[in-house]
Amino acid sequence: MKRLTHKLLAMVPTSILCLPVTLWAAGDKATNIVVVADTRRVTGVMKYFSNLYNTDILMYAIWAVILTAAMGCILGFLMDFIMERTGLDLKSRKIIEH
């Protein structure tokens, strides 16, 4: 077993060296795709954001990050509030490895 692990460990750097790689997990290679959101079909907030997507992608990106973070926080604290109602102890835990 020990020898096997040693061998495997030796394989790690070797395999790193022979990695001719592409961003495989990122899916198909990006061709020149331009997307225009169809603002004729949506109204209100959606229209505002679709429009932003078409005209000012940087602003849209900033918005996306802020909104995602805000949504994560809101949902996180909301769920926290609900979980506390169940009466479970959510502040401590024992670490048992085996």
Partner: peptide
Amino acid sequence: AIGTDIAHIAGKSMVSTIRHSKFG
């Protein structure tokens, strides 16, 4: 798919991190 994935993962990890943080 990928971009949507990543953004959703960031938000989701935030929820989990808040919870894990309370456990220490």
